[in-house]
Amino acid sequence: MNPLIENAGAIAQALGTTLMMAVIAGIGSIVLGVLVTVARVSPIPILRFAAFCYTQFFINVPLLALLLLAVFALPDAGLLLPLTPTAIIVLTAYESAYVAEAVRSGVNTVPPGQIEAARALGMTFGLSLRRVIVPQALRSVVQPIGNVMIALAMNTALAAAVGVVELTAEVNKINLVAAQPILIFSGAGLLYMAIALVIGLAAGWVERRVAIAR
């Protein structure tokens, strides 16, 4: 019989773990990424420097290295967490750097005249960020953030390297028994493609709904 059908229950459970990781890390990375962007454009030099160092670190260090470091080094430092939450935290921190860069590019699209108008109305920097700058920046970078979310969904596969039983880990375990790599990994690839397609379509729909008329 088809090993994918025989192990449909285990694959569905592993797919659920993949989706759960992608959703939680996706939401977390967007929130954290916006906060990092705010720090990058703030008038406080130390915040700008810290945010710059944060983004450069996570953009230039491989995700797999970060996962291995978190799983094997943090317990030695006395911080013990289950594997799945650890992977989610690392994915959130890693992808938030890319979200921050996308949102920062959106900040640059906000017309300077609107920022000056906010100042003329007496808005503080924080208030102008909340009311004027960040909302428009987010609306202009929906598709880039969608691309980051697609990359995040694909990157969940790396969690298999540190023992998280997600989709890639499960199908690899099935293949070790069934020895049908073309069939099994093609099936997994189609599932990942479906996830990417859904995210892409959702991002396109949101982008059309919130598009800024220039």
Rank of each mutant, 00 (worst) to 15 (best):
A102Q: 08
P135G: 04
Q180V: 02
R131V: 04
A194R: 14
V164S: 02
T37V: 04
D76F: 10
Q56G: 05
A22D: 01
I5K: 07
T17D: 09
F125S: 09
V210P: 08
V206A: 13
Y54E: 13
L68Y: 10
P62I: 12
L35C: 15
L176C: 12
M20Q: 14
Y54W: 13
E6L: 14
L80F: 15
T17G: 11
A8V: 10
L74H: 06
L66P: 03
A179M: 12
N108D: 15
N60S: 14
E101T: 15
A160M: 08
V107D: 03
T124N: 08
A169I: 07
V134M: 14
I184S: 02
R131W: 02
E101S: 15
M21E: 04
G28H: 12
A153K: 07
R139E: 00
V148T: 05
S128W: 05
A10Y: 02
L67K: 07
P144W: 05
V148C: 02
S96E: 12
S128M: 13
V164M: 00
T124H: 06
I133K: 08
A10F: 06
V103Y: 01
P85S: 07
F58L: 12
I59F: 12
G187P: 03
A213G: 15
R131N: 07
G33F: 00
T18P: 11
L138N: 04
E166S: 05
P144H: 01
V71R: 14
V90R: 02
V141K: 03
A153P: 05
I150P: 11
F125E: 08
P43D: 00
L152Q: 07
F185D: 00
G200I: 03
A213S: 15
Y94V: 04
Y54D: 14
V171M: 12
P144V: 01
S186K: 02
L158S: 11
S96A: 15
V162H: 09
A120D: 00
N2S: 13
L91T: 07
F72W: 13
T37E: 04
A8W: 10
A178F: 11
G187H: 05
T55Y: 00
G204V: 09
L83F: 05
G122E: 00
G189V: 10
L79T: 02
R104D: 04
G204P: 13
G16R: 08
K173D: 10
A39D: 09
I212G: 11
R139Q: 04
A8K: 11
L129D: 00
P135I: 02
N172S: 15
L47N: 11
P62L: 14
